[in-house]
Design a protein around this nucleic acid. Structure first.
Length: 318
DNA sequence: AAGCGTCTCAACCGCGAGCAC
DNA sequence: TGTGCTCGCGGTTGAGACGCT
């Protein structure tokens, strides 16, 4: 459902202050603002959001720009209703993760945490409430419970495919960020994703993102950096299974202190770019979903250990 | 057609974490 | 160590769409 733009000065009093340097706009975004933000992001990629707001000529706070980009403008966003499979996956992931919407969104291609949160609160929550089996986790506690989401209707391959899609989608910003920061560098080699047989299932929507290379999102100085298991045969990168955030960094890499969030402007929007690449080139670096690697690895991993009936979890960190 | 209640979802708010100085 | 800045997250709000009477 698309909203109309705010009527002038009704619910958006700051509209009248659009020319006031100290007054920031609030409320719905106009198409012009969207254009500004979109073109800025396409040209420059993600950096410090307050700089984005300033440099793009927007009378918005950086936070608002970030939200708008992430939830609406990002080219890899999928639009439209949730498919039954997505729904099932959401239910299941929620049963594991609780209200960790960003974690759930990381596993759904082209979906945002906000979108999933809204969907849950408006649709699933109600449905589960009305059904005979109440929500397993309405309280938000990540208490592991399995088998209530009907996920058994998904076969293993379907689930894996969904997660693969998720990997490409959720790591979009990394590719964007890096390619921007490395303006002087060649575009990341995304041949793995784009030219090497990953096919349409990898990219839900063909992107029209001209200058920004992204694919699997795991880039290193030699083209890509991947963490997780490659499954399937031939072609090298035919299927990429993203690691769950619970992946144990120490176990996966050769170093436990080289992990860096490359989408983090504090780390990546400066001349360290090359250093990041070289420091973390293939073999040691693990980049996954904007630095969420640290996110409560302990408890999520514990939780995941308890979940045995969910096929796609088989490929989680060992 | 009008009124009203419900639903959806974009956007805001507040908080905590990480980082630089 | 303290302070300030920025980011990211989850919770909440509220306008508009929708459906029912």
């Amino acid at each position: 459902m698309m909203r109309k733009l705010d009527p002038p000065a009704k619910n958006n009093p700051t509209n009248n202050n659009i020319n006031g340097a100290s007054k920031l706009r609030k409320g719905l975004w106009s198409p012009e603002e969207d254009d500004k933000l979109m073109s800025y992001m396409l040209r420059n990629g993600q950096g410090c959001w307050s700089d984005v707001a300033r440099n793009a000529g927007l009378q918005r706070c950086g936070k608002s720009c970030r939200l708008r980009w992430i939830n609406y403008l990002r080219p890899d966003l999928k639009r439209g209703a949730f498919s039954p499979k997505e729904e099932e996956l959401i239910i299941h992931l929620h049963s594991i993760l609780g209200n960790r919407w960003s974690q759930i969104a990381a596993r759904l291609p082209g979906r945002t945490d906000n979108e999933i949160k809204n969907f849950w609160n408006s649709t699933i929550k109600k449905r589960l409430k009305n059904s005979s089996s109440p929500s397993p986790n309405d309280s938000g506690s990540p208490e592991p419970k399995v088998g209530m989401g009907g996920l058994e209707t998904l076969n293993e391959q379907e689930i894996k495919t969904m997660c693969i899609d998720s990997a490409s989608s959720s790591s979009f910003m990394q590719g964007l960020s890096i390619s921007n920061q490395y303006d002087l560098l060649p575009l990341p080699d995304v041949s793995c994703g784009m030219n090497n047989g990953l096919g349409t299932s990898y990219f839900h929507e063909p992107t029209s993102f001209p200058q920004v290379g992204f694919g699997n999102g795991y880039y290193g100085s030699h083209g890509m950096m991947m963490e997780g298991d490659l499954v399937g045969g031939g072609g090298g990168c035919e299927l990429f299974v993203p690691p769950l955030e619970s992946t144990n960094i120490e176990e996966s890499g050769t170093s436990n202190n080289t992990t860096r969030n490359i989408s983090d402007p504090h780390h990546s929007s400066n001349n360290d770019a090359n250093k990041i690449n070289s420091d973390n080139a293939v073999g040691s670096g693990i980049y996954w979903q904007g630095g969420n690697m640290k996110m409560e690895e302990w408890d999520f991993e514990d939780l995941m250990k308890d979940v045995t009936s969910f096929p796609f979890l088989d490929f989680q960190a060992e």
